[in-house]
């Protein structure tokens, strides 16, 4: 059995979710290849070649792959699938955009956001905002899988796989990349951060969100997250959203400020190692999952926390 992993990368480097997806792939088979599809993506391919356990790295390059067009990635991957029994993609926004297309072209089901490999045809995946875990067995000859990266440890370094160029697939539909506006941030990436500080609807405005949440995150070297309610209200960009329909995180420390703890939010953070909740409502559901709860108005509690961190040498 041979397995293909589609790398998540920005051409210059690999995202941590790729290493985690390799771990999931290695639970299926020892023969794991990684596809890096992009433009000027040699550095990312070289990083993939160093992942322990990777057999071979495939590098496909074109303008359309560099723009991340789903049609281009699918057209690159589908012809390769004659040589593979499974294809695994991290369940990032790009992975979710691409993987179902590959499944449809192969006429197989997609097994979405797996959190455990039970056997090469049986997987566990969360449904209903993580309120249930479904174990499914696939009868398809080829498996198309997206992987919830936070559920797997990152594969280490130490490999020295060969890099092989493969043909980039052409886009057959009428789609054109216009531009992208990516937020440049010195903060760690939300999905892989060790500490996450998230703000909720209690912030009341985008200005307040920036004034309260961001300095605390920066003091801790943390990534910034937000509840769906805060995103919906326009206090924070969608890219910050933690939850069922946003990002799933599992940091060492998750600090929820002014977040009530709707099931949709808990779905995105309840696997964090330590959860802190700061909320003035003692009955907020967030306290049911918090290791440490501080019942206080964030307006007083966050400045006090900043001072206490400073006193502790942070």
């Amino acid at each position: 059995m041979a397995v293909l992993v589609i790398a998540d990368h920005d051409n210059a480097s690999l995202k941590d979710s790729t290493n985690k997806t390799v771990t999931a792939a290695l639970a299926l088979s020892g023969d794991v290849d990684v596809l890096v599809a992009g433009k000027d993506a040699k550095p990312a391919a070289e990083a993939a070649a160093k992942i322990a356990g990777v057999r071979k790295v495939l590098l496909a390059e074109s303008d359309e792959l560099g723009q991340g067009l789903a049609e281009a990635v699918e057209a690159t991957v589908v012809p390769l699938m004659s040589g593979y029994d499974a294809v695994l993609t991290p369940a990032t926004s790009q992975g979710k955009n691409v993987s179902p297309r590959i499944a449809a072209k192969l006429d197989v089901a997609q097994i979405s956001e797996i959190v455990e490999v039970v056997s090469p045809d049986t997987f566990v995946r969360p449904i209903y905002a993580g309120n249930a875990l479904e174990t499914v067995q696939s009868s398809d000859a080829k498996k198309v899988i997206t992987v919830r990266a936070t559920a797997f440890k990152a594969a280490g370094e130490g490999g020295s796989a060969a890099i092989e160029n493969v043909a980039a697939g052409a886009v057959s539909t009428k789609v054109k990349f216009v531009d992208q506006q990516l937020v440049k941030s010195a903060r760690p990436e939300l999905a892989g951060a060790k500490i996450v500080v998230s703000g909720g609807r209690a912030m009341g405005s985008a200005e307040e969100f920036q004034k309260v949440i961001e300095p605390l995150a920066d003091k801790l070297g943390a990534a910034v997250g937000a509840s769906r309610a805060a995103v919906d209200a326009g206090y924070a960009p969608n890219d910050y959203q933690v939850g069922q329909t946003g990002k799933v995180v599992a940091p060492e420390l998750y600090i929820a400020v002014g977040i009530s703890g709707a099931i949709q939010h808990l779905a995105g953070m309840k696997d964090s190692k330590v959860i802190v909740a700061i909320n003035k409502d003692a009955d907020a559901p967030i306290f049911q999952v918090a290791d440490f709860g501080l019942v206080a108005d964030y307006k007083n509690a966050v400045p006090e926390l900043m001072d206490a961190l400073a006193a502790a040498g942070k």
Partner: peptide, 24 residues
């Protein structure tokens, strides 16, 4: 269907921890 559901289980519950009095 392509997938057979073998079982649907409840995830491990996270228990509530402690309440602290101050930021310190």
């Amino acid at each position: 269907p392509h997938l057979k559901v073998l079982k649907v289980a409840e995830p491990a519950k996270r228990s509530a921890g402690i309440k602290v009095e101050t930021a310190g």
